[in-house]
Amino acid sequence: MTTVSAERLAAIFVEVADTLVDDFDLIEFLHMLTERATTLVGAAATGLVLADAHGRLEFMAASDENVKLLELFQLQYDQGPCLEAFASGQPVINVDLAGASGRWPRFAPRATAAGYQSVHAFPLRVRSQVIGAMNVFGDHRGGDFTDADVPLMQALTDVAAIGLLQERAISRGEMLTEQLQSALNSRIALEQAKGAVAQAAGISVDEAFLAIRAYAVGHHRKLTDLCYAIITERGTAERITSA
């Protein structure tokens, strides 16, 4: 990884500002953010988890949505960099996965087997509350975030929180819970939709995700609305197939 370029970071903030208009899709927004974060620091993959009401971290979005990477997020409900960043409110940086099997006995070997060499995690904060984490995987040994990179990546993580709060002005404390629950449920609907399209088209769930996303872009539909339609409106899953 290289030192974060200020120009590229500025470009991302402009894109974020453009996206955060009245009617945007949260999951799509988080996907965009994880993709940009990945290219910004030359990482292998970036993902985002949100805590549910029970403090359990649930996967929300990643730069590269495949089964292996999803597993690495699911593993982190009881150990791993996301859980540490979430619990401590502090970033976890430049951890060499090869040497981390004592720290995370289940997570580290699986992450190494998936081809990653280093890992970092940044807490996702809303005011004083930590609500999730952004996870960066590198394919360089040990990773090499410089001291200057850390606050920039944290700023990018904070942008994810802004997106989460944007859909409606958060005037009441309860609204954060409402919004989080809604986001978590949207993610479940996305998994259901992946399954439906995979079955209808005879493709893998990873391919189904790409097909759904392409259809949403091609037909100017919000990703989440499309996922609900795939499950509740007969024939929709089959249409994605022929798209």
Binding site: E191, G195, A196, V197, A198, V205
Partner: peptide, 12 residues
């Protein structure tokens, strides 16, 4: 995630 994917598959 697999449980939810399975629900979608079985639905079809």
């Amino acid at each position: 995630a697999q449980l939810f994917q399975a629900q979608g598959m079985v639905m079809i």
